[in-house]
């Protein structure tokens, strides 16, 4: 049973038949990791905290910089030089009462902390972190919602814990194998904060629907071309040569 105050606070969510009181309780019992507290991560963390997600773990070792402020809306000039994860955690716990842990860089050592996490949102800004995370999530059966943005290109990809579907779909490494290099980065290509917020909102929506047991297709790349305002969707089939998800003994496709 929800407390009366929570019932009123989350009433617009509870009104949705797909959520209801039981769904709200699921959201409040969920523990979500947000990897990267930059443009995407700030928005994702705020939307999830406001929706009543029980616990958030924020991974980032960067400090707030002046050039972050147009799109990383949890930070202000007074925060420059301070830890992004710490500032975001303090603000979100104060404003929404969410239990938020501020953690440092996600690397080979700290990634094992994710053993205790239910859901993972990738908001990082480099392929090294994305590959490390996607490989861990595939092996450890964690659902990963990956979002990326640079310039006018936004990407969204769900890597569901395998076994959720009878048809094997591609993993993140099938989409972008390990030797993929970044052609576009926000730091070198630029980006508008509103485009970042749009992709982040979709990541937050996706995580909440998954928590509410609303099935979503895994192994599909959603790509939004902001320049032409057009959606593109592509199936990402399991690659028999994939370094992460390929099953041994499969035939060569070539």
């Amino acid at each position: 049973m929800l407390a009366d105050k929570d019932f009123i606070r989350y009433s617009r969510q509870i009104l949705l038949p797909e959520c209801g009181e039981a769904g709200q309780q699921k959201l409040m019992q969920s523990r979500v990791a947000v990897i990267g507290v930059g443009g995407l991560g700030c928005q994702v963390a705020q939307l999830l905290a406001a929706a009543g997600i029980g616990e958030l773990w924020l991974f980032d070792h960067d400090m707030v910089e002046l050039s972050n402020l147009p799109r990383q809306l949890l930070f202000s000039e007074a925060d420059i030089g301070q830890s992004k994860a710490r500032v975001a955690a303090d603000l979100l716990s104060r404003r929404y009462g969410t239990a938020v842990r501020a953690l440092g860089k996600l690397d080979d050592a700290s990634i094992n902390l994710l053993d205790d996490i239910h859901w993972v949102v990738d908001c990082s800004d480099n392929f090294a972190t994305r590959h490390l995370l996607a490989s861990f999530c595939y092996t450890q059966q964690k659902t990963l919602v990956s979002g990326a943005i640079a310039a006018f290109e936004g990407l969204l990809f769900l890597q569901a814990a395998s076994g959720a579907s009878s048809v094997k779909s591609g993993c993140y490494h099938c989409l972008f194998p390990k030797d993929t290099e970044s052609a576009k980065r926000c730091a070198s290509q630029g980006v508008l904060g509103s485009a970042v917020a749009a992709i982040a909102a979709l990541q937050a929506q996706m995580i909440q629907q998954l928590i509410l047991d609303m099935p979503l297709p895994s192994g599909r790349l959603q790509r939004f071309d902001f320049r032409h305002f057009r959606w593109h969707e592509a199936r990402v089939p399991a690659d028999p040569h994939c370094a992460v998800c390929a099953t041994r003994g499969e035939t060569d496709p070539c």
């Binding site: 943005i149 290109e153 972008f176 980065r185 926000c186 593109h232």
Partner: peptide, 10 residues
Amino acid sequence: LELFSAVAGG
């Protein structure tokens, strides 16, 4: 065909 950049920004 759709050819697009590999994007990793966040």
